[in-house]
Simulated scan of single mutants.
Amino acid sequence: MTAAEPTIVATSGGHRIGDRTRVVFDALVHHAIDLSGVHGRRPRILYVGTAIGDAEHFTARMTEAARVPGFDLTPLHLFPMPNVEDVEGTVLDHDVVWVMGGSVVNLLAVWRAHGLDHIMHKAWQAGVVLSGVSAGSLCWFQGGATDSFGPELRPVTNALGFLPYSNGVHYDSDEGRRPLTHRLVAEGTLPTAHCTDDGVGLVYCGTELVEAVTEIPGRGAYQVTRDGNRAVEERIEPRRLPAHRV
């Protein structure tokens, strides 16, 4: 079972601290699984930690987070080499791809070196739900503001471009992201930006933004457009997702 049409869930959330585990999957991950249409069996999630260098301790935390609700999770590692023989077949065999945050610039370079950019596009077209947090959100867009180069935020403009917008993540918790996004859109460095506060996700069917959703009440999503030489921001009120207690 796959999504009825190409689907992306781009988020600034999806995880929280658990009562008995270090990390649990929050409502945004569960929503990505719901959108895949899987039923009658355990959902299959492909966890991709390229942006944090395939850190083994976090792979272990994600595996534990998946165990609690009964999901089957497979990590796809690219360091020091791919951990599966058939990367394309592995990606296409899953219901949801969840991409961890970290360095989006490093993620893009490594994915392109291994042809994973083309594989992800094929999976998207085949109905595998593409999703992720932070760098795992930004990668699907044209670009956005990133700290991949250092503490001072800078633009990345050569992301995968599956979606014809730019993306702003951690819009409420990192004070530099909103003004930089506004400047980059106003000067035309980035196209129209779709942005998320922490705990908020954006759902795309094809390339159309169909809904903003949140696992934290009071948080928002935003669209930043260019009007002449200035940026105009509009709030998009997200729908609150059902809480998942584990």
Rank of each mutant, 00 (worst) to 15 (best):
F149Y: 07
G144K: 02
T146Q: 05
A135H: 08
F71L: 05
Y47N: 02
Q125P: 00
T146L: 06
V97L: 12
G136I: 05
S134K: 06
V96G: 02
L46S: 00
N83Y: 09
T146M: 00
A66P: 01
A113V: 07
V105P: 04
V110A: 01
Y47E: 05
D93C: 09
V68D: 06
H94W: 04
V133K: 00
G136D: 03
G101A: 07
E56L: 15
E88K: 08
L92K: 15
L153K: 08
I119N: 01
P151C: 01
N158I: 11
C139E: 01
L153N: 09
P43S: 14
A159I: 08
G40E: 12
L160R: 07
P43I: 05
H77F: 07
D147I: 12
V105Q: 04
V156T: 03
L116G: 04
G49H: 13
L130C: 00
E56P: 00
V110G: 03
R42E: 02
M100I: 13
H39V: 15
D95I: 14
V129M: 07
G89I: 09
G127W: 05
V84S: 04
W124C: 03
V110Q: 03
R112E: 00
Q125V: 02
V110R: 03
L73V: 11
E56Q: 12
H77G: 10
L163V: 04
R41L: 02
S131W: 06
A55L: 14
V84Q: 02
R112T: 11
V129L: 03
P82G: 13
P82R: 12
R61A: 09
G144R: 13
E85T: 08
H118R: 10
W98S: 01
T74G: 01
T74E: 13
G144M: 01
G40M: 14
F162C: 00
G40D: 05
D93E: 02
L92F: 06
G132S: 04
G115D: 14
E85W: 12
T59W: 13
N106H: 11
E85Y: 14
F149K: 07
V87T: 13
W124F: 11
F71V: 00
M120Y: 09
Q125F: 04
G102I: 14
W124Q: 03
T59Q: 13
A55T: 15
V96N: 05
L46R: 06
G127I: 13
S137A: 13
V48W: 13
L92N: 03
Y47V: 15
R67E: 12
A113E: 15
L163H: 00
G161V: 10
R41N: 01
M62N: 11
Q125M: 09
E85H: 10
T157A: 12
A126D: 06
Q142L: 03
V156K: 08
R42M: 13
H57W: 10
L78R: 05
T59A: 08
W98H: 03
A65M: 12
G127Q: 13
V129I: 04
P43C: 14
H94S: 00
R44S: 15
P43Y: 15
V128M: 09
D147K: 11
R154I: 08
R61F: 09
F141D: 06
V104R: 08
G132P: 00
A55Y: 15
G101K: 06
N106Y: 10
H121F: 03
V68R: 00
G143T: 05
V87P: 03
F71Y: 15
G136W: 06
Q142H: 09
F162E: 05
T59H: 10
G53D: 08
